[in-house]
Design a protein around this nucleic acid. Structure first.
Lengths: 154, 154
DNA sequence: AGTTTTTACATCGTGTACGACATAAAAGAT
DNA sequence: ATCTTTTATGTCGTACACGATGTAAAAACT
């Protein structure tokens, strides 16, 4: 058994961690103009796709638990981006819905992905797009693996 | 301009963010036995490669600033994993060195990467290794891009 | 030598992440 | 119908991340 695998450059985890933080930083500049953080932006993206979701449903999509989501959603409620209403049919559930303000943010947010590409000097040509798609697919494969191992271990 | 790019599944950032957190969770189980967190493990990996580093030098390698590192290193100092000593030649610098305890942790840590592969049911065959290497290289390319854009923007 | 600028580190405040635990409602079992 | 278990959400404590700001030492400038 060699110690080589303990070198930073030989680990898969570190570049994932670093790339994730760097790309969130790159987003943050534009998100600041909307007055939101990156995790809040993720919630918005989910809610733009679904009219109404419970806290748990959002958590499943973002792989986040309620101990992270509850305070985050409360902050977004305070900013009047969304509403949190207890379900009448099942009082344990809290239903999340975007306010008009939250829905309108979609217009400004739509420019963000293109801005980021420009900032990175990535031209939207065939080769670059194929490369990005490949990376995305590999990441989802990895996520799948990691999710499975969480279930079998737990 | 379509809203398609605002769907979670069409973003590169989200799978990066999710994969990063999931893989750190997978590590955490083993790191708990060593009594450290993942960022602390990163510091250890760097320090196993270099006998002595300043706070900034560690920060460059991990892409972290002092406002994150200083408290983290103080905690590790409290656990007697490393020492923080002000440099005599340049009193602004704080020199980090592992203690004997910190160096010895390398033996136990050496098992962790292999354990993770086993947990994920990844056989160390040629195909899997090639795939992981490819992913790693793509991530480093992306990190390079993101770092460059930070410098040009700032 | 005295002044300005830069560098290296630290502190503070806000917002995640997440393990551990609490609680009330719903579902299931007897 | 009562009891037990599960589910959905919430609270608490600890540890990052990171922007903004502070501070002392070193370097650069005049």
């Amino acid at each position: 058994m060699s110690y080589d695998q303990l070198k930073l450059e030989n680990q898969l985890c570190f570049p994932l961690y670093a790339a994730s933080r760097l790309i969130i930083r790159a987003y943050q500049e534009d998100l600041d103009k909307l007055g939101i953080t990156y995790p809040q932006y993720l919630v918005l993206m989910v809610m733009w796709e679904y009219e109404e979701l419970t806290v748990n449903e959002i958590g499943e999509k973002l792989i986040l638990n309620t101990n992270t989501l509850t305070p985050l959603l409360k902050r977004m409620e305070g900013m009047e981006i969304l509403t949190r209403v207890q379900s009448k049919t099942d009082q344990r559930k809290v239903l999340i819905r975007l306010t008009d303000h939250g829905n309108e943010m979609k217009v400004k947010a739509a420019e963000i992905p293109a801005k980021l590409l420009k900032k990175l000097n990535i031209t939207a040509n065939e080769a670059e797009i194929t490369k990005a798609l490949e990376l995305k697919n590999q990441l989802y494969d990895l996520i799948q693996l990691l999710k499975q191992s969480e279930q079998t271990t737990a």
